[in-house]
Design a protein around this nucleic acid. Structure first.
Lengths: 347, 347
DNA sequence: ATGAAAGCGCTAACAA
DNA sequence: TTGTTAGCGCTTTCAT
């Protein structure tokens, strides 16, 4: 591996000149020198040693990405966006996925800090107050991804969850539904779930529709508890005629739960999902859903963070909210007159 | 941030002693010193600076993960495994996703090397010979993930694709199918796709079944080209009575394509997929599929790599192959007697 | 059982 | 316009 000294010797200049050159401080450098360096560096295949740089400057070109759980399509798509954003700015991302565990996320944060990351993108797990306080104290620029804690004064890049929930709910109302259910993952103080719930509730209210506790269900975060929740809701006498499913994983589970009950979508029940997935058009029936925009979210967050790093070291404190859009496919129809006739369930 | 010097001063020892302590070289260190250091380090919240370490030693505790395309469930699950493996060994992963582009992957490799990674996990994009030669020349330990090039002499961690394909095909044969199709992504010299195709072909041959070109289709890597391929295959007069779908994304597309044709699974057509996904039980019908084991694959690869790094710097050259297993659900049944009666297609 | 000191490759004063 | 030089925090001989 060639070092800065090799380059300097080869090009007959001092290492300071080389350093200036590779850092773009060529303000009054003779064209001859520049050209010579360009060639020498190319010939030697020289790449600056990131560790030495980081040691010297206390900064690195590393972006720490701390996410709650990587094993979701939503997140891998977001990471693609982050990756592209970082690359555009010449940064590399260090990803840590915490498996939804606070302690793990905490340890990872330390590791990342220890790697001298220049900035952090955090999709927080559910945390206690002392952890939140700790995050608030991070000196590097930080942007929260997708969700945050209201108490934490860090900028957030997310979609407008409230708006998305309104879009979904209103769509159902427009089709004539008055009995609308919600299936979500458990709510806690993490902003996004709460916002979706609130959007749902207030849209109902504004249309003068009643809110029945039986028609709001919370499932555990898994690949099957949403099926249970769906079945329970639709086995009741006061089952709704339409449901709003609050995230990508749940969308599949709701559809499956309905199918298990022998209910047809949209003939018997209408469904609108959140977080449009690439496979939505392939489902039975193709799913109408609010499109979150994970790729764009990730890219914007990365770009904002890198820009903040380049400039001072503070991210402008405003949040960035994307307006989601409703993608209409075939899972919504008018409410079915009369009571739900459940065919014998499949299981 | 506390440095080694702060610790040394606080504990009244030299920095050399501190260094020995944090690196576990406490062979003949007085218990008193050890205890004093333990406490001091804890009090100060000292964490060694990774950059300084890496600069000095030329090694780091970073594992570079170079993958072709992160935006797949299969890969995010694999990353979870890698993450856990790395963590268990005290390493941090640096992930780069190349968006299936060779040049991008190449640039990322350079960046990773530049970060002084201690080892590399590579899921290669389709590459030319000179790139392959370049990979072969990497001095750090490297393990190939999921697929590789036969010519490249690097150890591979993957599932036994041939065995998986046999399992799937044989399952269909056992049900009495004699006309079996395959839908795969385009084949190139990347090992895994070829292996699945070969497994399929040889199982057919061993049962004396004919191989018809019309029943083997290759789709472009996308979220919809598999739908087209499926429709084309099943619109033909010699459509098979069963299909083997060769990967996670294709599974959904094949099911969708069949549905669009008005064909019922498994009544009209049986389907067995590859790469069991968490949503398989939620599909219509719940999918019978060969379970790849991305999490275990990732974890094992990380473990093997870290172990190699700790010891010498060469990975033992053998490949690790997981035997996949067939998960039986509801998408396979006996072949339907008589010609396929296609109901009017949905679109 | 512990310490002193050199130096990893680089940046950023400061000098010239 | 370019060069000299002091460290960044750590590991590792070599002494003691």
């Amino acid at each position: 591996m060639a070092t800065i000294e090799d380059v300097a010797r080869s090009a007959n200049v001092s290492i300071a000149t080389v350093s200036r050159y590779i850092n773009g401080r060529t303000l009054g450098m003779s064209p001859a020198t520049k050209e010579r360096l360009r060639i020498t560096i190319a010939t030697l295949g020289y790449v600056p040693n990131a560790a030495a740089r980081s040691l010297k400057t206390g900064r690195s070109r590393l972006i720490g990405v701390l996410i709650a759980n990587i094993a979701h399509m939503y997140w891998s798509t977001m990471l693609e966006g982050i990756e592209d954003g970082c690359r555009a700015m010449g940064y590399t991302m260090l990803i840590s996925s915490a498996g939804n565990d606070l302690e793990t996320q905490d340890r990872y944060l330390r590791t990342l800090l220890n790697q001298n990351v220049a900035g952090l993108l955090i999709n927080p797990v559910f945390a206690d107050e002392s952890t939140i306080a700790q995050w608030a104290a991070i000196s590097q620029p930080v942007i929260m991804l997708d969700r945050t804690y209201p108490a934490l004064r860090k900028p957030l890049v997310a979609i407008d969850n409230g708006h998305g929930a309104r879009l979904a709910t209103q769509h159902l109302i427009d089709y004539g539904h008055t009995d609308i259910g919600l299936i979500s993952w458990e709510i806690n103080s993490l902003s996004n779930r709460k916002e979706r719930l609130d959007g749902f509730l207030s849209t109902l209210q504004e249309s003068g529709l009643s809110i029945e506790p039986d028609r709001i269900a919370f499932a555990r975060e898994s690949w099957d508890d949403g099926v249970r929740a769906t079945r329970e809701m639709f086995e009741r006498a006061n089952a709704p005629t339409a449901v709003f499913s609050a995230n990508m994983e749940l969308n599949l589970q709701v559809l499956s739960g309905l199918r298990l009950l022998g209910l047809r979508v949209p003939r018997d029940v209408s469904v609108v999902g959140f977080d449009a997935a690439p496979w939505d058009p392939l489902l039975e029936p193709p799913l109408t859903a609010v499109a979150g925009a994970p790729y764009r979210l990730g890219k914007l967050a990365a770009l904002r963070l890198c820009r903040a790093i380049e400039q001072g070291t503070t991210v402008r404190p405003h949040d960035s909210r994307f307006r989601p859009v409703l993608i209409t496919r075939e899972s919504v129809g008018p409410p079915r007159p009369g009571p739900l006739s459940q065919k014998p369930a499949r299981t």
